[in-house]
Computed example of a mutant assay.
Amino acid sequence: MNQLQENVKEAAEFLSSRLSHAPTIGVITGTGLGSAVGTLEGAFTINYGDMPHFPVSTVVGHSGQLMVGTLAGQQVMVMQGRFHLYEGYTPIQVTFPVRVMQALGVRHLILSNAAGGLNLSFSQGDLMIIGDHINLTGENPLVGPNLDDWGPRFPEMTAAWDPLLVALCRQAADGLGIAVQDGVYAGLKGPSLETPAEIRFLKTIGADAVGMSTVMEAIAAVHAGMRVLGISTITNINDPDHPQPATLEEIVEVANQAAPRLRSLIEAVVAGIGRGDQS
């Protein structure tokens, strides 16, 4: 067992000793979306900095807390805020929480993020179900010796975003009367925002939304054998012919406004997973 595996084991044992029930579903929230899961019954809450080996969120809109409790009858582990490559963290550090979830027995992972819209048919505040992604970060959390206990050397990514979970999410949105978009998410390293020329390039290669997170976690989760669902909140529209500056404060505000709809959708998806609707 190498040092990384030891660190993951220690963090997982630290949490397991404090939990009455192991989580089966994981949720990682994005910028301004810390309230996207709402209140968990019987929640255990702890700051990232109080857990062994956990990085600490440094970005506005990421509260940096972990919660474990019951949502829609299921034991859920929620990361309120994530870690990013642009903060200086390595892909291994960014995906550390996913490996801890894996060690605790999490089999379903829901990823949310705030993203810039590239598809001009989208509107600010839309929710987009991720159907596929493009990794443009130049990074991959699986580089280096493969840890066979964690997953295969060459994980299959043709259905990285689980089709059954995507269908469950669409069904849940319909039942709630929540309009959702579908699209491809492009992951960049950041932290600089995109130039008009870069936006044109991203649109040309088929991206509908762009952000600076999510892809590393999705790759690690697929490697871990998890079923993955992603939902982007479209916080601004990137029109290269009419570029408008986007501030972090505006992005957080739009994400906060969308959080109640996202919260309802995630709860309905969690309930559906509990019923086995995605089997």
Rank of each mutant, 00 (worst) to 15 (best):
A115R: 08
I237D: 03
R200W: 08
V56P: 01
I234P: 01
V100I: 07
D149G: 15
V37R: 06
E250W: 01
N238T: 08
P245I: 06
P196Y: 00
Q244H: 12
T70D: 14
N7S: 13
G117Y: 03
C169A: 15
R107K: 15
R263N: 13
G225S: 10
T204R: 14
L66K: 03
L202H: 08
P260C: 06
H62F: 12
G276D: 00
E249G: 05
H242F: 12
D239R: 08
N140H: 04
A218L: 01
V68R: 12
G88V: 00
Q5D: 15
K9L: 11
G26R: 03
R170K: 15
M216L: 14
V106A: 02
L85A: 14
E6I: 09
E13L: 14
F154R: 04
P245S: 11
V98N: 03
G187P: 06
I237S: 01
A115T: 05
E194H: 04
P245L: 04
M128T: 04
A246D: 05
E87H: 06
P191E: 03
L248E: 06
I237C: 00
L118M: 01
L71N: 02
M226A: 06
I28Q: 06
H62K: 15
G131C: 13
I234T: 06
I219R: 09
N146P: 05
A43H: 10
R275F: 08
M226S: 04
G151V: 02
A209R: 08
S123A: 14
V143T: 14
A173G: 04
H21L: 12
V94H: 03
G49C: 03
A172E: 09
A12F: 00
P191S: 09
T95P: 02
I129M: 01
G190H: 06
S112T: 15
